[in-house]
Design a protein around this nucleic acid. Sequence first.
DNA 1: AAGAAATGCAACCGCATAGTT
DNA 2: AAACTATGCGGTTGCATTTCT
Length: 292
Amino acid sequence: MVRRPCCEKEGMKKGAWSAEEDEILINYVQIHGEGKWRSVAHNAGLKRCAKSCRLRWLNYLRPNIKRGDITKDEEELIIRLHRLLGNRWALIAGRLPGRTDNQIKNYWNTVLAKKCGSLSSQSCTSKPSREAETSHFRSRGSMNGSDQVDADQPSLASMRGIPIPPQNEQHCLADKSTGLMNSSSSIGSQGLFSSLLAGDDRDEDHLSFLMNIDTDEDFSSRLFPDSTIVNEDNSSDIFGGLEKNNVVSSSPSVDTSHDQVARVDTEVMYDQQPSLHVELKKLALFLDLEDD
DNA sequence: AAGAAATGCAACCGCATAGTT
DNA sequence: AAACTATGCGGTTGCATTTCT
């Protein structure tokens, strides 16, 4: 298959976006909704490629983007999720409402990589190759093909760092997790832990387990039994629908009216920092169980 | 005060893959 | 089934800003 360039280079503007361009893009998306980025670029009269428009929207212009410093809770969560997921920034971002994958990726590459390097014997260094990976991140511009080997295999390479319980403790672990491993989720305790233990391609099962948190109502209600937040579609997730607009679940065909409702919800939720705090704590707690 | 070095972050690039024709 | 398109993702780069000497 011959690959065409992602966007026509001629006449396309590159570099920082101006306020005018931002305004045009915001107005267009507000009227027509997200998605169809090629037509956005074309119809809105922006001299930007579709990718550029999408990126600008997702990483900067979306109304529910949370700017400002990463909180302690968020930081802890990022570290834990990174241990579980590796460099799956979009997945990690999906668990941090209002944060973009780019934000988290940047934060990791700058702040956390450094921290983890200095705390070599602590939590974030369960990964044997952490030091090497950290220095890899820090060595800007020195990247070459061979350096990239580990970074190119996030799922397998990083999964190797997951603390793995001894075989005979598996069932205890499942029990400790408030029975959640016995949930009706398609991935039961056996599947999850065997995939963790195997360290082979079945890692994907383990990842889908995490992804299923979003959609498996039964699972999440077990995980957070006292959570009262329920999505419009009646399925609760960890952040109670905060991610309606977020990376993981975003869909080009999302109904814009729903979108706006979700946006309002989101803005309200962000004002309720305590409840967000509680949810973050809950997820951290869950991750603690996994650590044990 | 000025130049160098380090840092932070927005944006770009290429690849993968789901969806469509 | 194959070809093609659109979108999403992770890695990388460029540049503005900040800190250090």
